[in-house]
Amino acid sequence: MDRPIAYDKLAREERFVRMRAREVAELKVAQGLPPFPDLSSRESIKERVHGIMVGELQAMEGAGRSVCDFPDAPWDFTMDMARQVWDESRHVEIYLRLLEHLDGYAGEYPETTILWRCACAEDAAARVAGVNRGLEGLACDVFNQLVHIARKIGDPVLERAVDFVLADEITHVRMGSKWLTKLTEGDAERRRRAIEFQESIDERFNLGGVRREGDHDAVSISIATDVRRMAGFTEEEIERLIKTTQRSQVY
């Protein structure tokens, strides 16, 4: 088998429209719309849920590649990645059902592959740092806020389903922290590169200032500091993330 595969080999049914994240954001801004769905309406929640569904799909594909690409990694690493594949496949199903619940459908909004590209890092340590800590950390922020919004608008289906997905994501971040440490033991340079990769992902997913510290109702993506602590991020890491969101200009 090819290990790893080129990122452009990601296979999709024809009903999905794939576009660059930057292009999607620019075209929305040009129409006077926020670049990222702001959860201010049911339509906006549906668009956010679609984005999460696609993200879960890519997370399942990425974790699957980690099972495949690193046969020489410790066996327990493979076990954790295999467990994550299972979790993500259930998350895809959950979000497909939530899309139905919101009268939406798979393929209703363009798919961007920015998450998948991050999952194509060739080093296992970089991949868990980037995906499990960077992207799953972002998922903690997004899902924590979505649970809050669902509770506020009185949608127990959305609230309960996302609450359970959030619990899984916290577990995935913990896996990432564990394997970042174990895989880079005695190799400071490898650890430095992996953390640098994670920070580049954090920076990218600040989405031009969309992710910020603040109240769930006041910002598009609020940083879930309590959930991040529970997932094992240090105070220093949380503080650094908040600082980077104050200067991030890219999406």
Binding site: M1, R3, I5, K9, L10, A11, R12, E13, L57, M60, E61, G62, A63, G64, R65, S66, V67, C68, D69, P71, T78, M81, A82, V85, W86, E88, S89, R90, V92, E93, A106, W116
Partner: peptide
């Protein structure tokens, strides 16, 4: 197991992706 994991990304059909993922 490793083949199924790797194939998920290479498989277009959602039903087959979910099957392998499970």
């Amino acid at each position: 197991m490793r083949a199924l994991g790797g194939w998920i990304a290479l498989t277009p059909e959602l039903s087959a992706k979910l099957l392998m993922g499970r």
